[in-house]
């Protein structure tokens, strides 16, 4: 029974030792990826040294093996449960002091060597009691040495092992990246929002009466209104031109020649978006359009009701009399 347990513990110990070595290597590789080969050499050397130490400890005797066994068992069991980064420390403090898991990697590495020595001591003690186990342990140490040699010689195997380990860590790293990915998403989202707010600021400058409104929805509302008012103004102006057009046709080039001269003059006045005098008085786009409608009402009165001008029927009736007479005069002069 004791034998079995002892062998079990040995296997555990060997396993943990190997795992310690490998994990150390992996960790070192993880932290210093450039020094792969040298590290491999160093680690194999260290394992050799440990083997030698183990030989030297053969003569020493152990007293409380079962306690140690229990400790190692708990250590190995705990190793099964906890994450790989903490194994070495847990193995070091096999007596159950798991609070020190939180040590950083450098400490872990340094403790890892100590852990190996401790393990070797325990192995030695066990081997002192049972010779068979000693043989087995020798074999195991031999296999360890062989393994280390193999590792030294077969760099490809070693690298593949390490890459496997690294893949493990890489997976963790990718998971970390997944967190980062969401972070980058949020960064992109923030950049997009900044862009939008910048455009909104420009629009605020461009659209009159928009600078007093806070909030995106209100601003969008105002922008929509402004664009629609501008579109309606174009509609209205083209209508007006259509009404005046027979005359324009006659001396269109004349007017254009005049306009080319006069257009820069109108643009030199920065704030008069609407050069027309009655439009300048009304500072708001809606009012502009409405005044446009008012302005256009007389024409609607003149033209027959079946005309598509009925869309201008808003604000019917109360047109300024001067415009009324004006446009009527205009129309009578045109003879439409």
């Amino acid at each position: 029974m004791m034998m079995d347990r002892a062998t079990q513990s040995e296997f555990f110990l060997n396993y943990t030792d190997m795992s310690v070595l490998e994990r150390q290597r992996a960790q070192l590789k993880y932290h210093h990826p450039g020094f792969d080969s040298t590290l491999a050499g160093f680690l194999s050397d260290s394992s050799m040294i440990n083997g030698g130490e183990f030989g030297g400890f053969m003569g020493a005797s152990g007293s409380d093996f079962p306690v140690i066994y229990g400790e190692t068992a708990t250590g190995s069991d705990s190793r099964l449960s906890i994450s790989p980064d903490n194994i070495t420390t847990s193995a070091t403090f096999g007596s159950g002091n798991f609070k020190k898991r939180k040590f950083n990697s450098v400490v872990t590495e340094s403790k890892g060597c100590n852990a190996k020595k401790v393990m070797m001591n325990r192995e030695v003690e066990e081997e002192e009691e049972k010779s068979k186990i000693t043989e087995q342990n020798n074999e195991s140490t031999m296999t360890m040495k062989d393994k280390s040699k193999k590792e030294q010689s077969n760099c490809s195997k070693d690298s593949s092992k390490v890459t496997k380990e690294l893949q493990k860590t890489d997976y963790i790293h990718v998971r970390a990246r997944r967190g980062q990915a969401t972070d980058s998403h949020s960064i992109a989202e923030r950049a997009r929002r900044e862009k939008i707010s910048e455009r909104m600021k420009y629009l605020q400058d461009l659209v009159p009466g928009c600078d007093k409104i806070t909030g995106k929805a209100g601003m969008l509302d105002e922008i929509i209104n402004y664009v629609q008012s501008l579109q309606r103004q174009v509609e209205f102006l083209s209508m007006k031109l259509a009404a005046v057009s027979p005359r324009i046709d006659f001396d269109i080039d004349d007017i254009f020649a005049k306009e080319v001269v006069s257009a820069p003059i109108t643009t030199n006045l920065p704030n008069t978006v609407m050069p027309s005098h009655e439009m300048v008085n009304s500072g708001y786009p809606h009012e502009m359009v409405n005044s446009g409608y008012l302005h256009f009402n007389p024409v609607q009165q003149v033209v027959t009701s079946s005309d598509p001008l009925s869309c201008f029927n808003v604000n019917n009736g109360q047109a300024p009399s001067m415009w009324d007479s004006d446009v009527q005069n205009l129309y009578s002069s045109l003879g439409v």
């Binding site: 501008l230 174009v234 031109l241 005046v244 257009a263 978006v273």
Partner: peptide, 13 residues
């Protein structure tokens, strides 16, 4: 567009 059209209309009127 509105500026130019308006100035044309004004000139025509």
């Amino acid at each position: 567009q509105v500026n130019v059209m308006r100035s044309i209309v004004d000139a025509a009127e």
